[in-house]
């Protein structure tokens, strides 16, 4: 029984590290979103620093998960938890990269001519932040209902993305001399949408952990 208690401690610490990484990702996302809403030249540097911290957390979590697998031979839901933790960890790392890319684009825009933001950009940014927060919360607190909410938010994020694209395309047509600025903005919106998709993948992962039900790639029935 001693052994199992040690295992619980290891798992709790792994979860804690994931939450820490999640918090940092949320911070990075907020900074990127702010930077795109009001472009700033220092956004890029700020994002780079956060990204470096995320990378080292990613490595630490992977090492910990690997060690638990090698030494504790987790089974059934413990095994699922570890596999998912690894997936989520690399998902978070990817979000960090996307945030950095958004910040770079914001910096580029800030250094060039100002652009007019799509009307729905703020709402999209808020929704994506909410989805990221929700999926991590769902994973850590075994909240399958919350995970399902995040999964169903994907449609809304798709709609908002489309509206943003349309608005950016109209701006491009109106002000062709700013086509490069708007291209960066368009890419930033695409990154946001992508981050929302990753939130959905994390939410699916958390359903998998708690129910043993693989829903990645086929969650139509949840809607």
């Amino acid at each position: 029984m001693n052994n199992i208690r040690h295992f619980e401690i290891e798992i709790a610490e792994l979860k804690r590290s994931l939450v820490g990484m999640g918090n940092l990702v949320e911070q990075s996302l907020s900074a990127a979103v702010d930077a795109i809403l009001i472009p700033r030249v220092d956004a890029r540097e700020e994002a780079r620093v956060l990204e470096e911290r995320l990378d080292s957390m990613d490595t630490a979590i992977e090492e910990r998960a690997h060690r638990i697998m090698a030494l504790q031979h987790p089974m059934i839901s413990d095994l699922r938890l570890l596999i998912s933790a690894l997936h989520i960890c690399s998902d978070l790392e990817q979000i960090g990269d996307l945030c950095e890319s958004i910040a770079k684009r914001a910096t580029w825009i800030a250094k060039h001519s100002p652009v007019e933001n799509p009307k729905h950009l703020e709402e999209l940014a808020r929704l994506v932040k909410e989805m990221i927060h929700g999926c991590l919360e769902a994973f850590v607190s075994s909240n399958t209902e919350l995970a399902k909410t995040v999964i169903t938010q994907e449609d809304h994020s798709d709609d908002l993305t489309k509206l943003c694209y349309e608005s950016i395309q109209a701006s491009m047509a109106r002000t062709p001399e700013k086509i490069r600025e708007y291209t960066h903005l368009l890419r930033a919106v695409a990154h946001l949408e992508h981050i929302g998709d990753i939130a959905v993948a994390i939410a699916e992962e958390s359903v998998y952990v708690h129910k043993g039900q693989m829903i990645r790639h086929h969650h139509e029935d949840l809607r």
């Binding site: 199992i4 987790p74 089974m75 059934i76």
Partner: peptide
């Protein structure tokens, strides 16, 4: 991978 009963899972996972 996914036993039906919690008792089974609790035994296997120690």
């Amino acid at each position: 991978t996914n036993p039906s009963l919690k008792q089974t899972e609790d035994y296997i996972t120690g």
